[in-house]
Amino acid sequence: MGSRSAEGEQSSLADDYDALISTTDVELLKRAWRNEKAAPEILRFESDLINRVKGQIELMEETVEEKLSVGSDPLSVSLYQMDLDRTLFLLRSYLRIRILKIEKYMFHIRKTQELWNRLSRDEKLFTERCTDDLKEHLESSVLSKLPENYQSYERQSVISEEDDMVPEPRLDTFVLCRSKEYLTGIQLEDGPVDDRSKLFEMEPDVLYFICYKSIKPLVESGKIDLL
């Protein structure tokens, strides 16, 4: 959980303690879910968190099972079941958004090391199979029948300078975000690089519509949340 520890160093000890006792894994999962939903590109897979949540779900499933078999109060059993269902929904929804993104940008993800490293082991397997299948499909159904210069699944033709047939996420999408602390000196990667005068600050708990590209590092370090 690199993002959490990095965040912890910044805030005071008291804040840390508060956050620790008030933040459950479900809260963290909800945050990861919202970020993943709002971000245009795929984010780092929260493997530790997901493992913990999975463990808790399994434990709770056993508890519910046990409570049913000893015939304890049906009301409390149904409440445990509801809690379980809510957590399951979050987990499923989180995993599904990631799969949607993978399906959309699979070629791009597979050839970009940085994105590839963000996937879980299962997601990597899935991406590999997906890209292989789609490539084979494109080749056998269309590309092999085209003239020689147009047979690449990545490029329109041999004269293309870049892989112009590979869908990429648009990082200049505008997203809505909120910071927990006062942040200053955010470099807005807006327009040309040489214009360094545009520094931006963010007040805590105020919503900003901003270009995803500019705040990408802050989302990755967990300093700001998307919503």
Partner: peptide, 23 residues
């Protein structure tokens, strides 16, 4: 460059907002 903006993807449905509010 063929990527499209994915607003459908990032939008929260009314039900999802309700789900969040239920906490």
């Amino acid at each position: 460059m063929a990527g499209q903006s994915n607003h459908e993807l990032s939008l929260f449905s009314a039900e999802e907002l309700e789900f969040i509010a239920e906490d």
